[in-house]
Simulated assay, not measured.
Amino acid sequence: MTAAPAVLAPAPAADTAASAHPLPHIERAMAARRPGREAIDAPFAPLERIAHTLLPGLATLRPALGDTPLVPVPSRAGRGTVWLKAEAANLTGTVKARTAYALICAAVARAGTARVRLVEYSGGSLAVALAHLCAHLGLDLHLAVPHGAPERLVTALRRDGARVSRGREGTGFLGAMDEAARIAEDEDRYLLLQHCAPEAVSVHRERTGVEITTRLAREHIRPHVFAASVGSAGTLVGVAQTLRLRRPDCAAFAVFPAEAPYGDPEAPTGAPRMNGTGGLGHGLRQPLLAPYEADFAFADVTYPQALDAMRLLRRTQRVAISSSAAGAWLTASRALDEGPRGRHAVAVAAGRGTTEEWADAANR
């Protein structure tokens, strides 16, 4: 039996740079570009229109993004139904394709030119999406990945024409963030900075969230719960905003690894945890989530719990999802299974899972 994830009270507010750390480049970048609610709540569509005019190739990518399936599966104890937003149907196979597209649109629109040189950090899925889209668009891209990123990933990124650098050993994901910020300074590149990018929220508010509410309305389904694992928090915040326009009473859960919770006070490490999600370390809080903390409950899921849930869903439902998606399903299940029978939840299934995740799951 997979243990249910612990559900935590909302984390207390804290300054994003609350504790000093030896990663000055990303600290400067986040302090300069941390958005407020007004920026986060601004629409994405105007930026997209400008970007399409400046770089028409972006319009050819748009049809390959979105309109992904919403797949109903039982909750963990079978008392309700969790609708998985199956983002593996996107170009490059993950929800991060939507985010990559939005980041590029915003960069081109704000720069006022298609001749923009980009840099960004990623632990995997966003890097793959950015490399693929930039190769299609002919954009110059430099990516920073954590020191321990699989060589398989680095090879794939370089195959798509991206330059790749690694963060310093022992600095985890935050080290990749710092390396990207350093590259932006040294090479005069535009840092996409997903954690401070309002478009990472608005694209999901206007696209992913609308797709979910439209499908549920067609099925006459009322969602009681929404859960998503948190990377930059763009998907979580954007979809929650749209769901609550239709269903103000829908409970929303921000899901984090137990090994790296929101506002994690410890120094970052490369310890195994759900892929593509987690606290940044040194007490830092995701700037896209920080203004909305009171709107969410926080839940944590251990990596073994997520791996067991991946195996369970593949065995019983023939659904392959990533560890972060499994964490969202477990959290949504907990909320449903503690209440009356017959209720519904939505969980974001970010992708099908990496080779490494499924190898870890097989060894459980």
Rank of each mutant, 00 (worst) to 15 (best):
G124V: 05
L236V: 11
P46H: 08
V7D: 02
T277D: 04
D140H: 14
L133D: 14
P198F: 01
L70V: 07
Q194D: 02
F296D: 05
A349G: 09
M1N: 11
R364H: 11
V119S: 06
T92D: 01
E179G: 04
L130Q: 12
L157A: 02
A184N: 03
L236E: 12
G327N: 03
H132S: 13
E185V: 11
W358P: 00
A135M: 10
S122I: 05
R364T: 06
P261T: 09
V95Y: 09
H195I: 15
L118A: 07
P304N: 00
S324T: 12
A240M: 13
G112C: 09
T235P: 07
L61I: 15
Y190F: 13
Y292T: 05
S324Y: 06
I212L: 00
A332Y: 15
A176Q: 08
A156F: 03
H195D: 10
S19V: 12
G279F: 09
L118H: 08
P12Q: 15
R98A: 01
A86W: 08
P265A: 09
P223E: 04
L143W: 07
A144Y: 07
G238H: 06
A106K: 08
G170A: 06
A14K: 11
A39I: 03
L284C: 05
L137Q: 08
P268K: 14
G351C: 15
Q194L: 05
V128I: 14
E293C: 13
E338N: 15
L8P: 04
G327F: 04
P46R: 09
S165M: 03
E259S: 02
Q305A: 02
I183R: 13
Q305Y: 01
A51C: 01
H52L: 07
D308H: 06
L103Q: 14
A290P: 03
P24G: 06
A131I: 11
V301L: 01
P146F: 12
R218K: 14
D337F: 14
A325T: 00
T269F: 00
E48A: 13
R247N: 01
A127I: 09
A114L: 09
V319K: 05
V348A: 05
K96C: 02
F173I: 14
L103H: 14
R159D: 02
I26Y: 10
E206R: 07
L84I: 12
A227S: 12
W358S: 00
D140C: 06
A233I: 11
R28Q: 12
N363Q: 15
L312D: 03
T208V: 02
I26K: 03
V71M: 07
I50A: 12
V145P: 03
T155W: 08
E179T: 13
S202P: 01
Y190K: 10
T171R: 12
A129H: 13
G124P: 02
A42M: 11
I104R: 12
A162I: 05
T331A: 01
G270D: 15
G278E: 06
L192K: 10
V82I: 12
L284E: 04
D160G: 09
P35R: 08
D337Y: 14
E259V: 02
A347N: 09
V108M: 08
V82M: 09
P272L: 00
A89N: 07
S333W: 07
R352P: 00
V154I: 15
N275C: 05
A77V: 06
A359M: 04
D308Y: 00
R49A: 11
A135F: 04
S75P: 04
G283M: 10
A114C: 10
G161N: 07
G66C: 06
A88C: 03
E151C: 04
V119E: 08
R311E: 00
A176K: 08
V73E: 07
